[in-house]
Design a protein around this nucleic acid. Structure first.
Length: 357
DNA sequence: AAAACGGGGCA
DNA sequence: TGCCCAGTTTT
């Protein structure tokens, strides 16, 4: 007995496709990346839409395509330019991986986005979902594009209570979509599921009474749409405290530094941050001298803010500081005029601190 | 299999 | 607060 037999034995595939696609044709959302089927635009939009709402993405998409209209423009750009265009969108490795992959497309595929699974999935930042989205939406191939929307919609349609946080559950849904996807119009099919999940089959209070595929839905028939999908609770995040220094030199310029090329907020810029835990009660000035080789005088706290990431929370205390003496040692700080800060990509938390300058 | 990786919006 | 969002990479 296969997985499909367990879940699809009474599912009217052709009827479902017809109800879904006719609803989509009449109700599809007018989105900027749906103007044409340019694989580059589809690609950019799909990367931006990872873990990010449509309304948030739209202005970024317009700006990004204006700055980098083709793969060649993006391939030729400075990474800092790309990060600046991504500033505030989060998950910055998406931007760096996208540019890395686009450069590969220019160099190895003559600037043409691959139209096959094998080449697409080896590009940085393209996983199972994005591969399927590009192949189906841009190239009209019947390939599953399974995301949270799809798992929610089909967990309800077929009354599947497997934990959608598990990786193997995603594979189950990919097998299911492989069976039910329209071969006449796979592009519309995948986009229709996305629209349905975003506007009707929502996480909370789904609009089942207006659902075009209500008659195909086991969860609605059983009145358990609120119980699905099943998802394991995420573990809660930890808090880390920092003192953040806005250091001025004798010219009134402010000290910033580039973050590590790896890990959290990679390659973005920030005001120097001192982990309170590393201080062990010693003065900030001393810790700072040991770390940077520069003498500073720290001022009174100007403000504090909390910034919540998906896995950690920053508690930030903002202090002004004055550079006492430049001793010639190498350090990682750049002193820049306040007016020039806007040309560097900053995390949102540090953008918020600029009000204290 | 689990953790790392942003930020905003909503009940 | 906790959960969700058109996920992928690293450990």
């Amino acid at each position: 007995m296969t997985v499909q037999d367990r879940t699809l034995h009474n599912f009217n595939i052709l009827g479902f496709q017809q109800d879904l696609l006719s609803w989509y044709e009449a109700n599809k959302r007018d989105l900027p990346w749906r103007k044409d089927q340019d694989p580059y635009k589809v690609w950019v939009s799909e990367i931006m839409l990872q873990q990010t709402k449509v309304d948030t993405v739209i202005p970024y998409f317009h700006n990004f395509l204006e700055k980098f209209p083709t793969v060649y423009d993006l391939a030729a750009a400075e990474e800092q330019e790309v990060l600046k265009a991504w500033e505030g969108l989060g998950y910055y490795s998406r931007a760096r991986n996208l540019q890395h992959a686009v450069r590969e497309v220019v160099e190895q595929y003559n600037g043409q986005v691959p139209d096959n699974s094998k080449d697409l999935e080896q590009l940085k930042g393209i996983g199972s979902y994005t591969k399927g989205a590009i192949l189906s939406i841009a190239f009209n191939k019947p390939v599953p594009a399974v995301d949270g929307n799809v798992m929610r919609v089909f967990s309800r349609l077929l009354n599947i209570d497997d934990d959608i946080a598990q990786q193997k559950t995603k594979k189950l849904f990919e097998q299911i979509i492989h069976e039910v996807i329209s071969h006449e119009d796979p592009s519309s099919f995948n986009q229709a599921i996305m629209d349905l999940g975003a506007t009707v089959c929502t996480p909370k209070s789904p609009s089942c009474l207006f659902c075009p595929v209500q008659e195909h839905c086991q969860a609605f028939a059983l009145g358990i749409e609120d119980k699905l999908p099943v998802k394991a609770k995420a573990k809660k995040n930890k808090t880390i405290s920092y003192h953040v220094l806005q250091i001025r030199n004798e010219n009134g310029e402010v000290a910033i530094e580039k973050r590590s090329k790896d890990g959290l907020l990679a390659n973005l810029w920030q005001f120097p941050m001192i982990p309170v835990k590393e201080l062990n009660g010693s003065p900030v000035e001393e810790w700072f001298y040991n770390q940077y080789g520069l003498r500073i005088k720290m001022g009174k706290k100007q403000g504090q803010l909390k910034h919540v990431f998906s896995h950690i929370t920053w508690e930030l205390e903002v202090h002004p500081a004055q550079l006492i003496v430049e001793d010639g040692t190498n350090h990682s700080l750049c002193f820049v005029p306040v007016e020039e800060l806007s040309s560097y990509p900053f995390p949102v938390s540090h953008q918020k601190m600029m009000q204290y300058l």
